[in-house]
């Protein structure tokens, strides 16, 4: 079935790409909604609830972009994509942007012809094992059977890690996160490896999360971020600066609670420019003056989105770590709005 979806996408690539790249922002405005590619189901990052409403950390980026364009965070349709068919879907024009915990790498940026607009989560690849296994380090995994999601940077990192450490393993390639978890729980593999955030997300869904540990080794750098196609700089700017607006909002203390008040005008010109009461940043992007206000209004600033979806008070329980603001010792750093 994957094959068919794929060949369909390929055909779409040959027929649709020509006019889809004319001007994505205009196309999106014309059709009235944003088509956003997300994961098939990673708790906290992208899941659909019982009513089919998508929510999560990555989904919030899509909603923010939709709100920046249309003023409505629901003017977005989601396409769940496996790690295998996500790139084809984006380059063929099936989706306008991808917010699907995708690692920013050289070859994806350069060879696959995509533009990563920034990083919304700094991650790294880790391993999860059942506590009962008695393993405390990834280097003890010699001869272990490891479940991996196929079509990701994960399987390349995994090969490199075991090769570097001179130990062997048995890879079990699996299409989706959910199938991988099912096999892991049934004991068909000893360890499950993916980005540490994904492991935490998976563990949160287990019956007994405490029976599983995430090993201390982080074997790779995985900067995850939204991406768009090459060749449409205006559209790239829209997505990039929407993401930056969420990060900038946190830095300057703009939250969904005080947004309405701050939007009346403040003493801080940076906030005023961000919220569109000063300058014409929105116009430059081809959007309304209050685009960033609308984007922030949907789910709050970066910190609010983080805490609500994957923060320490959620079952996933991720701490900010590298994803704190640069002022707090993290890596989040939005270029200035001026």
């Amino acid at each position: 079935m994957k094959r068919f979806a794929f060949i369909g996408a390929l055909t779409a690539a040959t027929f649709a790409a020509g006019f889809a790249s004319a001007g994505t922002l205009d196309d999106v405005k014309a059709k009235g909604f944003l088509q956003c590619g997300v994961a098939t189901g990673v708790v906290g990052f992208a899941t659909a609830d019982a009513n089919g409403r998508w929510d999560g950390f990555d989904v919030s980026v899509c909603r923010a972009v939709a709100a920046a364009i249309f003023g409505d965070g629901d003017a977005v349709k989601f396409t769940p994509l496996s790690s295998k068919n996500r790139f084809t879907a984006l380059s063929s024009g099936e989706v306008d942007m991808l917010a699907r915990n995708t690692t920013w790498t050289f070859s994806r940026d350069v060879e696959l012809k995509f533009n990563f607009v920034g990083v919304n989560y700094y991650d790294g690849q880790g391993f999860m094992v059942p506590k009962a296994l008695g393993v405390t380090s990834a280097k003890d995994l010699d001869g272990a059977t490891v479940c991996i999601q196929t079509g990701t940077t994960t399987e390349l990192n995994l090969a490199d890690f075991f090769r570097k450490n001179g130990i062997s393993y048995e890879p079990v390639p699996i299409e989706t996160n959910n199938e991988a978890i099912q096999q892991y729980i049934a004991g068909a593999c000893d360890a499950y490896t993916t980005d540490a955030s994904g492991l935490a997300s998976a563990r949160a869904t287990f019956e007994n999360p405490k029976d599983h540990i995430i090993l201390p080794e982080i074997v790779s750098k995985e900067p995850l971020g939204p991406l768009v196609r090459h060749g449409d700089d205006q559209w790239m700017d829209v997505v990039r600066w929407t993401l930056n607006a969420l990060i900038e909002a946190e830095e300057y203390g703009v939250t969904s609670a005080n947004l309405a008040e701050l939007a009346k005008g403040t003493d801080n010109p940076e906030i005023n420019r961000l919220l569109g009461t000063e300058g014409n940043l929105g116009e430059m992007l081809g959007l309304s003056a209050d685009w960033a206000q609308k984007a922030i209004a949907v789910g709050g600033n970066y910190a609010e989105i983080f805490e609500r979806n994957i923060g320490e008070n959620t079952p996933i329980g991720l701490s900010r770590g590298l994803n704190a603001q640069w002022t707090d010792g993290g890596l989040l750093y939005s270029p200035p709005f001026r």
Binding site: K84, F87, R108, E111, T150, G151, L156
Partner: peptide, 9 residues
């Protein structure tokens, strides 16, 4: 048709 396709695009 799977991993090679995906890693090389």
């Amino acid at each position: 048709g799977g991993i090679t396709l995906n890693q090389t695009g």
